[in-house]
Design a protein around this nucleic acid. Structure first.
Lengths: 225, 225
DNA sequence: GTCTATATCACGATAGAC
DNA sequence: GTCTATCGTGATATAGAC
């Protein structure tokens, strides 16, 4: 899509390094909390050099956000396209989202900020093409899981109720968890990103969506994991 | 607790006005995204006047955050102290948390930032007494719901599983929802804070925690709402 | 493609008049 | 308790040499 995307190797991948560093810093302290000087310094460049790779701070931020969303969309697409019942695909969708955050730890924080902080960017940034691209990717992701939930309801696998409400819960339960950092580790009493914690999170959410947290005395669907 | 808390009325409540404005602005753009100049201007004061009410930006932010947490703790305490089974009290706890966010809309965003953004404050701010106060309130809130979940498990009302994992889901599902702003409204296709949306959110979460989202064929516990 | 130098502006915080 | 004036710093962004 981007004009620079065609040359993945040639002449020093400064651009990728900048994006990696910026992703980590923006995730930790947000758009306003990070200066271009700090980013440049962490990459090993002068501040002004960033302007030869990006049009400015806002565009850089949007490129970073778009890259994260693109990675996530790729993973989720596999779950949507997989075989099995709607409920099985939903389980895989949840697990794929968790894997995406576990693989690239800053993603969850960056995404949570990006989703919640509408007014953080200067107003003129909404005119940038990257802004529209981010929104489009987001819409596709949401539309995908929405269709999956509706399909599950039609098939009688998912109870009645508002799919958008369920989506809000899914996003909140997954994204918040992996963005919760120190507080999350205080709650858990364990590291957030260890293989064991990640596995436990998957199991808990799949179980929650299947049966809630109540000790239901009736017969239960088979545990899928 | 605070030395100023004893005089709720006398001599112009500038302090409260500052806190209200700061809460709204910090919620929208975060600690680093808001300048003292903007806060003072919105209150109708000069920038320097803020320093006669607060010790600096970081302390002001912590006071705002502490006030929000105090309001929430008050509401949740009522639910914890109420009568009924652990599951019924958990339902009330969830509904009280939702009411707190619905009543003071910026709270959810402010809190989500405060919870997730560890590194946003300058390091010396962690030495302020308000920092410890915020953490204490947070710990009390978390300990309260933790005890409730464990009690429910002992009584056989709540299934086995990790209470911390359940708490992470609770926080994520409630706080994210009410912090989700424009994106949340795009997902829902409806305003986030209308009486109907708030009622629907309560019903969805209570239902989710009772029975999951699967269409369970077995007998179900009575709907408590 | 990276650099130095600079322009312009806003920031948090302080001093001191009233 | 609020104000004006100011200090020192760091912000984004640009210009132009190499």
């Amino acid at each position: 899509m981007s004009p620079v995307a065609r040359m993945p190797e040639s002449s020093g991948g400064s651009r990728e390094k900048i994006l990696d560093v910026a992703e980590s810093l923006f995730a930790r302290r947000g758009f306003a909390g990070v200066g271009l000087r700090e980013i440049a310094q962490a990459v090993g460049l002068g501040k002004s050099s960033l302007f030869h790779h990006f049009d400015g701070k806002a565009q850089l931020y949007l490129v970073v956000l778009g890259r994260v969303l693109g990675r996530i969309e790729g993973r989720l697409g596999g779950a949507l396209a997989s075989e099995g019942t709607a409920m099985q695909r939903l389980d895989r969708w949840i697990e794929a989202l968790i894997d995406a955050f576990a693989e690239t730890p800053p993603s969850a924080r960056l995404l949570l900020r990006g989703l919640v902080e509408d007014e953080q960017l200067p107003p003129e940034a909404e005119a940038l093409p990257e802004f529209a691209a981010v929104n489009d990717t987001l819409d596709r992701i949401l539309a995908g899981v929405y269709r999956l939930l509706v399909e599950g309801q039609r098939a009688g696998e998912i109870r009645t109720g508002s799919p958008p409400q369920m989506i809000q819960t899914l996003i909140g339960a997954v994204v918040y968890h992996f963005a919760s950092g120190e507080l999350g580790e205080r709650v858990l009493g364990a590291p957030l990103l260890s293989a064991e914690s990640v596995r436990e999170r998957k199991a808990e959410l799949v179980r929650l969506f299947h049966t809630g947290i109540a000790a239901c005395p009736g017969p239960r669907q088979e545990d899928p994991s």
